[in-house]
Design a protein around this nucleic acid. Structure first.
Length: 891
RNA sequence: AGGCGCGUAGCUCAGUGGGAGAGCGCUACCUUGACGUGGUAGAUGUCGUGGGUUCAAUCCCCUCCGCGCCUACCA
């Protein structure tokens, strides 16, 4: 029975139209929608939410392709599968974007005011914020788009307030005046990990600080002379004998006329500089600590813009770096400058705008993270969370052990405003999820809300459960929390991953994810970080436009070996595009033969024992490929998935199987023809399903034109290995036949025999069993190697004018009277001899070693003995062939 | 300073305690009934250096050389 007109595929794979078509179809049929069926296993991922200001870069492409591969795999496995998409409000980044936009109109955010400004940000988000989401869709990401979330959504904001209030009431959030990293451009505090440290070629200034009584001086070294205006002490090490006499000395701080004390502190390094340290508690984190230990005064000499303030006296109004120049000049003029040395050191920069961070004291909100971090560490130590690759465990523990309190307040407008109110009547601090009307202490209705907003990472730390409706106890949470795996780039392990662990464990009493997979940064092919300024950026959308999305996805997966950086090479993308095209054409060829068939032809594959060898072989190889691919996916060895698929599809299915079965497909033997068609269809369908998670578009298109009524491929069950397909005997028999075919082709090629010329070949020195097999396949071999006759003879007298090929211990020769070049033939055999002799030397070395015989496992010894036998036999074949060739040379 | 990783074919990279692999590139040949985005065949490696463990090391351990990254409060 025919199932209607066979469909056709175009000659080459044209991805653009195909991709568009399936994106639309999948969306219309709501294929990505999460199901929550009782009794099924669950698989869930939350996307690392890209910044709402973001555009897709190649790191996103890698990250999301991996997530999509696993999501599609588990969906096909029949799991309840959810991939939650969304974006991050990215406080500072987004505020910067809108501020820049305002600046083009000559306005600052202060001109429009807080409420207006926030409205502008929402408008911006409405207009431009969907960019990266649309790009993820183009990539084929099978997120449940109906569940798209945004960290500023009402629901997520509720979760943020709930968490804040609970932590506050548990005493884990506090407000205080501490030194923080301040960005004088963004005008906000930054968390420690929001500061990038860059090497900087600076100077080390040695300054002379005289004693107040004029009896002496001490020389201090600093990289930041301008901060001397805020010095409130000089510190030396308590054991430093050079400075023991400073105990009761006051220091007259140059330029200021202030007298400051000398303190003794363990922190000071005797070896560094002069061993004497000027202490500026308001502008240096270490100095701050020293100041606290010795009750030094605080003297803040800069304002929020990094401009010197009134306490800087005549320097007020100067930018900090301008001030530095003037201070140095003045110190030199007045004789306080001892010397200036070149000095390379790291300076902190704002991770958003690269402005040099100013450490400064300020009133901020903090999370006491230690107790939360301890819970996260315990979860990892106990194996409730696994980290891949393993190498990250140590880094994780090291960081968590040294973790410091987390500054969560930001002096910007865009973000979750801190839910804390101060009573103007009695100064009571009220922290509630909803705005209080009256002060619970004094009853005043004059309440003022905090103006600060929360660090963006505060809301993203809640992402795995806030996106599922927490604090409500939702069906989503019940079905999908904890999530299965988090896939992200290693550089946000601490920003984000660790904090999700802390929050998840604390509030859900369960880890947020079972596994964490940290992938490498994508670099260019020279190992350089991609950056706009270097100009080596590979734009994924551009790549997708030129090579197709499937080719890019397959490339990324093929490169994704654990624990290794990814150097993306465009040549590889092109290579995999050819591979996609190869799949397309294999399908096209198959369709010509099975396109109009009834689907019952598939039954042939149900009874492999009744099938000819080649079909048994391909079914066995298919089963092994299913195993390899599933194993790779289960263990997150993505590169092995790609390699197994590539090798099987191109070099086994196409190169050998399709070529081999052509004879049957074109023959008049209906039985053989139908067997071939049936197995071909089954293998093609299997392989299309297997590779679908990696290359969803081309496979969906191919699937749709295969015979019969078809639903979408992406919801088909993922292939299981069938035990009855495995067949070791078929595999070893086929490898004998393939070896013989390769040998004959080699001879033809080496001897320059034109492909159209028919020749005779001899297979000899072969066991009876093997001879029978080769005889059975005589015509197939002859077809594939263009022979006029194939002679199989266990023993034979060989003609002298023959080219030889040694395959294992079998000898193949082709009489080529007058056609062979004796010298090159001898040279070839010589090369072969070298290899065999080297192998023999090694094997004999082992077999003559009593220790080897005594200690090596029996199986290894046996293998070595077999190897020796085979090599001996090969050497004999080589010698015979050489002798014959020499005989053929007229002397 | 501490920690981590890497060094395998011309290039980009897999891999393994028991006879060195892939893709690209290169060479030769081929309008062989899907694919020239193809086919067939071929060449190319002291698996960074020196030592150790082992019957056996490219793989495990140590030294060194080269490269990269991360963390850190030495002004």
């Amino acid at each position: 029975m025919s199932s209607g007109n066979p469909k056709e595929l175009s000659k080459g794979y044209e991805f653009a139209g195909v991709e568009e078509k399936w994106l639309k179809t999948w969306e219309e049929q709501r294929c990505f929608q999460a199901q929550m069926d009782e009794g099924k296993p669950s698989f869930s991922i939350v996307i690392p939410p890209p910044n709402v200001t973001g555009v897709l870069h190649v790191g996103h492409a890698l990250n999301n392709t991996m997530q999509d591969v696993l999501t599609r795999y588990h969906r096909m496995c029949g799991d309840n599968t959810l991939w939650v998409p969304g974006t991050d409000h990215a406080g500072i980044a987004t505020q910067n974007v809108v501020e820049r936009h305002l600046a083009t109109q000559g306005k600052s955010r202060h001109d429009v005011g807080r409420e207006q400004f926030i409205e502008r940000v929402w408008e911006w988000r409405q207009e431009k914020g969907g960019t990266i989401i649309n790009q993820l869709k183009k990539l084929g990401c099978s997120c449940d788009w109906e569940r798209e979330r945004f960290t500023m959504d009402e629901g997520l904001s509720n979760a943020v307030r709930e968490v804040f209030v609970r932590l506050y009431k548990e005493g884990l959030i506090y407000k205080g005046d501490y030194i923080v990293n301040w960005c004088p451009r963004c005008l906000t505090a930054l968390a420690d990990d929001e500061v990038d440290h860059e090497e900087y070629k600076g100077k080390l200034y040695h300054l002379r600080y005289p004693f107040a009584d004029g009896s002496g001086e001490v020389v201090v070294a600093t990289t930041r002379p301008e901060t001397m205006l805020g010095d409130t002490g000089v510190a030396v090490h308590p054991d430093d004998e050079r400075y023991a006499h400073l105990a009761d000395v006051g220091i007259l701080l140059p330029l200021t006329g202030r007298t400051i004390p000398v303190v003794f502190d363990q922190h000071v390094q005797k070896e560094f500089g002069t061993g004497a340290l000027k202490v500026t508690p308001s502008h240096d984190r270490d100095d701050y600590e020293i100041g606290r230990r010795h009750s030094l005064e605080m003297c803040k000499v800069m304002d929020e813009h990094g401009v010197m303030n009134d306490l800087a006296g005549e320097y007020a109004g100067l930018d900090r770096f301008e001030c530095r120049k003037k201070i140095v000049a003045d110190l030199e003029r007045l004789g306080f400058l001892v010397k200036i040395e070149d000095y390379e050191h790291a300076i902190g920069q704002c991770y958003r705008c690269k402005t040099t961070v100013e450490p400064t004291t300020s009133l901020q909100w903090f999370v006491a993270v230690k107790p939360l971090a301890d819970e996260a560490v315990a979860a990892v130590r106990e194996g409730r969370i696994s980290i891949y690759p393993k190498s990250w465990y140590n880094t994780f523990y090291g960081w968590m052990d040294n973790i410091r309190d987390w500054c969560i307040s930001r002096q910007i407008w865009w973000g979750h405003r801190i839910p804390a109110w101060t009573c103007l009547g009695c100064d009571e601090m009220i922290v509630e999820t909803t705005a209080p009307q009256l002060c619970p202490v004094c009853g005043s209705n004059e309440l003022e809300q905090e103006t600060d907003v929360l660090d963006t990472w505060f809301s993203s730390a809640l992402w795995p459960f806030s996106t599922m409706g927490w604090p409500e106890q939702t069906r989503e949470l019940k079905t999908f929390y904890p999530t299965s795996i988090l896939i992200t780039s290693f550089d946000i392990l601490f920003f984000w991953v660790a904090r999700m662990m802390m929050m998840g464990i604390h509030f859900m009493e369960e880890v947020p994810f079972r596994d964490v997979y940290l992938h490498a940064l994508v670099r260019d092919k020279n190992g350089k970080k991609m950056s706009k300024s270097t100009g080596n950026v590979l734009d994924p959308l551009d790549v997708m436009g030129r090579y197709g999305t499937d080719a890019m996805r397959f490339t990324l997966i093929a490169f994704a070996a654990q624990g290794r950086e990814i150097r993306l090479d465009e040549d590889r993308i092109e290579g995999y595009r050819f591979f996609i095209n190869k799949i397309w054409n294999a399908a096209r060829f198959s369709l010509m033969h099975v396109g109009s068939c009834d689907e019952t032809i598939r039954d042939a594959a149900e009874r492999p024992a009744e099938l000819p060898l080649v079909h048994q072989w391909i079914l066995s190889r298919t089963a092994r490929t299913i195993d390899a691919v599933r194993r790779g996916l289960d263990e997150y060895h993505f590169n092995e998935v790609a390699a197994a698929l590539y090798q099987f599809i191109w070099h086994e299915f196409c190169d050998w199987y399709l070529e081999w079965i052509k004879a049957d497909l074109f023959s008049d033997d209906e039985h053989a023809k139908n067997q071939a068609r049936g197995v071909l269809l089954v293998v093609l369908e299997t392989v299309i399903k297997l590779i679908h998670p990696v290359t969803p578009f081309v496979t969906e298109e191919i699937w749709s034109v295969l015979p019969g009524e078809r639903k979408v491929l992406m919801l088909e069950p993922y292939p299981h290995r069938k035990n009855e397909w495995l067949n070791d005997s078929a595999e070893s028999r086929m490898s004998l036949l393939m070896g013989i075919i390769s040998g004959i082709r080699n001879i033809r090629s080496e001897a320059d025999v034109h492909p159209s010329k028919r020749i005779e070949a001899f297979v000899t020195s072969i066991s009876d069993e093997q001879a029978a097999l080769v005889n059975d396949f005589s015509s197939a071999i002859s077809d594939m190697t263009r022979l006029s006759a194939l002679h199989v003879q266990p023993k034979t007298d060989k003609p002298s004018d023959a080219a030889t090929y040694i395959f294992n211990d079998i000898e193949i020769y082709v009489p080529l009277k007058g056609l062979i070049d004796v010298d090159s033939e001898l040279e070839k055999l010589g090369r072969e001899r070298v290899k065999v002799e080297a192998g023999l030397k090694q094997v004999n070395g082992k077999l003559n070693n009593r220790k080897f015989l005594a200690n090596a496992p029996e199986a290894v010894v046996l293998k070595e003995k077999e190897k020796k036998e085979e090599l001996d036999s090969r050497l004999l074949r080589i010698t015979e062939a050489e002798d014959r060739l020499k005989d053929s040379v007229p002397t």
